[in-house]
Design a protein around this nucleic acid. Structure first.
Lengths: 194, 194
DNA sequence: GGTTTCTGCCTACATGATGTAGGCTGGGTG
DNA sequence: CACCCAGCCTACATCATGTAGGCAGAAACC
């Protein structure tokens, strides 16, 4: 073979396969076929199937972190929120398999990765433009993540296919609603009960 | 064997296996082992693996629809919203594998099932207690579903494990936030741009 | 009551996936 | 020039899906 395989080559090809056929179709034999080698050859570069999948997850995490970072740089408030959400949605649309790879419990190594740290610092950064008290940041971040990921997941699994209008409009409404929610957050930040 | 197998027996056992080991572990051979029969025997009751999984999804859809129906009966406003969300969360916690089976694109038969129709009528029912204009119902329903499913998915995949406090508190905040959002909805229902 | 039929699980098999063990080869190094 | 070893290979064990066809026992029919 011209260029020798490497862990990153294999993982990159797995990611491409995921985007084309869905993350659940990522298989050592399929990747081997695409690379024109025999399946056992891959085990020198990747420990096992789980490691391959985790590799794709780590790759996707890094890519998404970079995209979001560029998108929200120099923005705040609604502008930052729109950029943040749009970046997530764009990634989910353009790299569906990679995005899928993020919707699962990944190995410890991935969870501890720099990309993971970077990503989890981005939502709080967006929140800085809103009057959400520090103590409430966790909750706001979780709400934000839940809504965004949830919307993209439902859209992807076809949950919105049997009602009109197109998800597009609902997405815009959702972002605006989140903005309103964050701007009005103090209202809900009572410390007694919930 | 004492009692002969049937489609429902097989699917029920698959659902039990899903709750114990995760939906992705639902396999014809595993179910056959649990039932004490040989794998090919199952093909008389279930067309193939996809049909088995769809069966579990349909089962879960029906169970969840019933639980939610009981929960929201006779309630409205925040009370209905709390019941609606709590029922979803309880189902996700107590039947994790069945809940997982709902987070995927299911076959046409499942989508067209009565249970599916029933479920998709429940969120609009909760909305009746809120001043959301009819034309905006779709968007509100989608937002509601996105946030609830998204939260449960992130919680399940361990996204909240590395920050405190426990998801519990964020969940309550989220429900309250959704209530506030729905009560204030008219504010966002401008028809011009988004 | 005996024969027939049919239902429901069986064995046998083809295919394709994961993962292990160990062999072969060609390009870089003493 | 000989050696070595990195990197891919073949061979194999195991387990999953799905098909084909066999067999046995209970129900149905004469």
């Amino acid at each position: 073979m011209r260029t020798p395989l490497s862990a990153s080559t294999v993982i990159a090809d797995a990611a491409a396969l995921a985007d084309e056929a869905g993350f659940e179709k990522v298989t050592l034999s399929a990747v081997a076929r695409r690379l024109g080698v025999q399946a056992p050859s891959l085990y020198s570069h990747v420990r096992d199937l789980e490691a391959l999948r985790d590799g794709v997850t780590a790759l996707a995490l890094g890519e998404l972190a970079d995209l979001v970072a560029t998108a929200i740089a120099g923005r705040s408030g609604l502008s930052a929120l729109k950029a943040y959400t749009a970046a997530h949605r764009a990634y989910a649309r353009e790299s569906p398999g990679r995005w899928q790879s993020l919707q699962r419990r990944a190995g410890e190594a991935v969870v501890r990765s720099d990309a993971a740290k970077k990503i989890s610092a981005q939502a709080p950064a967006v929140l800085r433009g809103y009057p959400v008290p520090q103590a409430e940041h966790v909750h706001a971040v979780r709400l934000l993540g839940s809504t965004i990921n949830g919307f993209l997941a439902l859209e992807r699994t076809g949950n919105f296919d049997h009602s009109s209008p197109a998800p597009e409009a609902s997405w815009d409404r959702t972002v605006v609603a989140l903005d309103a929610l964050l701007r009005a957050w103090p209202v809900h930040s009572r410390t007694d009960e919930s």
